[in-house]
């Protein structure tokens, strides 16, 4: 049976989590030639409100393109955690931005805490790259694609003037999680 891995990125609309999902899907399906399907759901608001992006990665063609039992979930805000940090499988993974998620969802999964937005703001100097920090963190957490594949996909996506900024953000997220896990 094909190996199917399901990830969900959730947060507030405008935080770039759909973009993070797209980059991961590109890392998997363009850089690594696996199968990937990225989808999202969102409300009518352009910004704010809870938004989620789901990425299914598999070594064979993907039928159902939405999550069934989530292997790994990211929640950047309390609203997102309340609304979308569910359906995580037993022994699965949940990464939260613990500056914003104070009521931690309960379940039979491992919870990792990292001040993602603050890390972007204080260590990179730009809050806007919090999604790329989060992407690096999720890839480190799951090993669903190789570190270099994720970096390559990030750099292919961003404008030239912001290559260094995003490279730094991606690797910072990646390294912080690897340290946390050790």
């Amino acid at each position: 049976m094909a190996k199917r891995y399901e990830l969900r990125f959730s947060g507030a609309g405008g935080q770039g989590l759909i973009t993070a999902g797209i980059i991961l899907a590109e890392a998997a399906s363009i850089v690594e030639s696996k199968y990937a399907a990225q989808s999202q759901s969102y409300g009518p608001e352009a910004r704010g409100g809870a938004s989620k992006s789901e990425v299914i990665i598999s070594d064979s063609p993907i039928d159902y393109p939405k999550a069934t039992i989530v292997d790994a979930c990211l929640a950047m805000t309390q609203e997102a955690a309340d609304k979308y940090a569910n359906g995580i499988k037993d022994g699965g993974l949940l990464l939260i931005d613990d500056d914003f998620v104070k009521r931690v969802p309960e379940g039979n999964f491992k919870v990792l805490k990292m001040p993602i937005t603050r890390t972007a703001k204080e260590e990179i100097g730009r809050e806007i790259v919090a999604n790329v920090v989060a992407l690096g963190a999720m890839i480190a957490l799951t090993d669903v694609v190789k570190r270099e594949s994720g970096e390559k996909a990030v750099l292919a996506k961003v404008p030239e003037a912001f290559l260094d900024l995003n490279k730094k953000a991606y690797n910072l997220g990646y390294d912080k999680i690897k340290t946390l896990m050790n």
């Binding site: 797209i22 899907a25 399906s29 199968y35 990937a36 399907a37 990225q38 989808s39 393109p65 939405k66």
Partner: peptide
């Protein structure tokens, strides 16, 4: 909408 908005290779 699902296939309209989803992304695949």
């Amino acid at each position: 909408e699902i296939v309209g908005h989803m992304r695949e290779r």
